[in-house]
Design a binder for these strands. Structure first.
Lengths: 341, 341
DNA sequence: TTGTAGGCGTTATCAC
DNA sequence: GTGATAACGCCTACAA
């Protein structure tokens, strides 16, 4: 089934069929309706590769994922092993669907060059790249091509005519999380950092320290670990073991995984959350709605990272130049912080 | 950049470039290496739409999702609102990537016809359709086209030359879950069903009842609800309120959400899980690794539904006829069932 | 308002 | 072993 068949059936030429499909104005009502009827009857849809080849947009965007940073043990993890990345990926898919775009997902890795084929040749109108904060040579090369790209969570900022970037405002997040705890009457706040080598962690910690300073609070406690439940659990467990009279009333965790581990450790030591100790996380993962207690968190993900990236991409596709964007931050109140303001 | 440019640079014809790209045997080593060098130097990749138009496979499969069944309040939910669907979708993406396929994700809905364009015209080599168990007219129509399709979780079995189906073995799952509890010395087992209208629920409950019968256990207790945490929570809370001397020692929950809600309700009533009451869930969601206690569950998802669907699809693409498949079931032991065998 | 024809970048079928 | 050429299905000037 193709436009020639439709044309023959409708008694018109292929170009007329094309005009109908693409909503050209200069076409008579009769012809249009006649053609549309035939199209409908024959369940005809234009061939996407052919349309693309002929220069049209496809309504498909690429989602390129660099998984090198998602580690599991010593090995590279897949997206589905991580609730965080699963949520981020499906959020991008959902946001795209919402504005009528479909998403072509591919991984960036050295083994396969599938992603290059997809990227280098436009079945896609543009792409969002999740780099996991990693400087990856290939990504730098990609940005030099003519494709429209949005770089997500790529802290080493690059930008050009065809490239935009979107990053969470980690500093502000750290600041607001700390501020929220202070407003709820906490003065002894422990901050558990994620991977100390990542800018993300450093900026969140900077926000924490700056906020304490601004509020004239001297006691700052920072322990560095990893962005995992196990790490949060271990750090708090060890801390409680080594400090019989623990002296913090709240924890600002580097992300929700750490928060969850910290909460488990506290609970196992018969310290109630949030009555005895409050905990605030970061990332606002959906997971946080299913734990006990549910996790109060810093939101930059939900309706932010995904939708902003997509909007930026659409702007690029529409011909606007690349820009740099930092997402807004808000506290999502759940039950792991005791309300006492 | 296209094959003509490469051809000119290499001093050969376009056909020769094509032969090199597609690994044709009848070509001299010299020519091949010369062309490959030019290709490399110029960072050239063949144009996917053009290849597809000329009749080649693309290495892209479609993932079509019918979201009508994923409800949130009264409204239709997005995939990212559901940890279950997020995990399923990313598992399929991961499994595909693993064998070198990229995934084009699109939703099936009445508002947009994007999915039809994608489906009806082959940038994709085939598609997996997640129907959420819903009889949807459009899906039936799709199976009549010539595309290669795998229907996931579509209990009303359809199969033809181009269509395979994959379903979880809900009956066996219900049976094995119950058997596992019995083996751990439970005789009073409450089963909390999900949506009673869905075959999924009915089959799990059938498995439960058959297993009790096979083990000569008279007491069967079934309460029907929905596939949600809230439902599990409410049912157990109400039960405990109305039965001061509750008489079950274990719960078989219709899925992990229900299990989670049930556990919360038990804990709030100072009933310890698993010491006082054991709970087993269904679906083996990643979520179950982050709760306290972690949730023992019936696994059909992990490395099953996703990978089997994909294998089936690849078989179809390779020209084999459609088949019907039911996934294997296994118990994943975590900490919500007390080991007492 | 409609039809004709060239081109998009490949692959495949012929020749040579 | 390699080069010309006709598809693949569509879009878009240009002509009428």
């Amino acid at each position: 089934m193709n436009s020639s068949v439709i044309a023959k059936l409708a008694g018109v030429s292929r170009s007329t069929v094309s005009r109908v499909i693409n909503n050209y104005p200069d076409i008579s009502k009769e012809t249009r309706e006649k053609v549309l009827k035939i199209i409908e009857e024959n369940n005809y849809y234009p061939n996407l590769p052919a349309q693309k080849l002929a220069g049209k947009k496809t309504g498909v965007i690429g989602l390129l994922i660099y998984t090198g940073e998602i580690k599991k043990g010593g090995n590279y993890k897949k997206v589905s092993d991580s609730l965080y990345y699963s949520e981020l990926v499906t959020k991008i898919i959902d946001a795209s669907e919402n504005i009528g775009y479909s998403v072509l997902v591919s991984y960036i890795n050295k083994k396969s060059s599938n992603w290059k084929k997809i990227f280098a040749n436009g079945i896609i109108d543009g792409a969002i790249i999740i780099s996991g904060g990693k400087k990856y040579k290939e990504i730098n090369n990609l940005t030099k091509l003519e494709n429209k790209i949005v770089l997500l969570d790529y802290e080493d900022y690059i930008s050009n005519e065809n490239t935009s970037t979107v990053n969470p405002n980690n500093f502000e997040g750290g600041y607001k999380a700390t501020e929220y705890l202070i407003k709820n009457n906490h003065k002894k706040i422990l901050h558990i950092m994620g991977d100390i080598k990542r800018k993300m962690s450093i900026n969140r910690a900077r926000g924490y320290k700056t906020c304490l300073k601004d509020n004239r609070i001297q006691d700052s406690m920072i322990i560095a670990g990893e962005f995992s439940e196990q790490s949060g659990y271990k750090i708090v467990t060890d801390y409680l073991k080594n400090n019989k009279n623990f002296d913090f009333t709240a924890i600002f965790a580097g992300n929700d995984y750490i928060a969850l581990g910290a909460i488990k450790a506290l609970q196992e030591n018969n310290i109630k959350v949030p009555e005895d100790v409050s905990v605030i996380g970061f990332d606002n993962m959906l997971l946080g709605e299913y734990t006990s207690p549910t996790i109060t968190s810093v939101n930059h993900l939900d309706k932010q990272i995904a939708e902003k990236s997509l909007n930026k991409l659409i702007n690029l596709i529409d011909g606007e130049p690349g820009t740099k964007e930092i997402t807004c931050i808000e506290i999502v109140e759940r039950n792991s912080v005791f309300k006492n303001s």
